[in-house]
Design a binder for these strands. Structure first.
Length: 257
DNA sequence: ATGCCCTTTACGAAAGGA
């Protein structure tokens, strides 16, 4: 089984690239973030022609998550129990069972700056996610994948000095991720196609991608029942090249069986 | 070369991203 996660930064703007990527990479399950469309605007028919079922959760202009699967999609849930909003609910989490695994596609709030109310919201959201996951960690195999908007360690940013005083690297954010792992989830670290750091995001500006100045903020957390089956995990930086890419690259994970 | 910000709504410009 092959699954993947990808922040596409608008599924409409990325549709030609998404379809080409699906056709060549052929994941069984794909977790999408920042789709930026309401459910009725999702290109369900287009991905359906490639054999994928869709579960989408969107609100239009911002956010938006989805799951694509060609091995079934059951027990779809939009959001999670106790999920905070700002103050209204935002489309940042969707989960469903596919191929015997419950997959979460999540888009963690950005936080903006450490003194911004959105930062408090980010920490609350991560805490609520941990609680929701803890309640079902024993229910079966689980994968939580997506844009966590946190670089777990200083090795996960291209220059830690640049990020002093910024979000994505603060101790409370990193502790929130550690607490999520603490309920029984393992970080499936992908191998980079280039360099020593499996970065998944590179700013569009200033040739950051071409200098490989990125961040590892897209993550795959999985229960041991899934992690023990991993045969390969890679950041597909090919998908970040060329004309009209997302600013994030997909992570592709292969499982035995 | 992989190449120097993008997407949304809305029709100009502002917001958000990380």
């Amino acid at each position: 089984m092959r699954f993947a996660t990808w922040n596409v930064n608008s599924v409409k703007a990325r549709l030609p690239r998404l379809l080409e990527w699906l056709d060549t990479t052929k994941p069984d399950v794909l977790c999408l973030q920042e789709t930026k469309v309401a459910e009725d605007g999702f290109p369900t028919a287009e991905v359906g022609e490639l054999g994928y079922d869709v579960a989408a959760y969107g609100q239009g202009r911002w956010n938006g998550v989805a799951l694509l699967s060609r091995v079934g999609l059951d027990e779809v849930r939009k959001g999670f129990a106790g999920e905070p909003g700002y103050p209204d609910p935002e489309a940042r989490a969707i989960s469903a069972v596919a191929g015997g695994i419950r997959f979460y596609s999540i888009y963690v709030p950005n936080g903006r700056t450490p003194d911004d109310p959105h930062y408090t919201y980010k920490l609350s959201w991560l805490s609520a996610l941990r609680a929701a996951l803890a309640a079902e960690i024993d229910a079966g195999p689980l994968v939580v994948a997506g844009d966590f908007n946190v670089a777990p360690t200083d090795d996960d940013v291209w220059d830690p000095k640049v990020f002093i005083g910024s979000t994505h690297v603060t101790p409370p954010e990193r502790e929130a991720l550690s607490e999520i792992r603490g309920i029984g989830l393992r970080d499936i670290v992908a191998r980079p196609m280039k360099g020593d750091h499996p970065f998944t995001y590179w700013d569009y500006r200033a040739g950051m991608f071409h200098k490989n100045l990125g961040m590892r903020i897209d993550l795959v957390y999985a229960t041991g029942s899934v992690a023990d089956r991993v045969t390969d995990a890679v950041v597909d930086r090919e998908a970040r090249k060329g004309k009209g890419p997302s600013d994030h690259a997909p992570i592709v994970v292969d499982l035995d069986g």
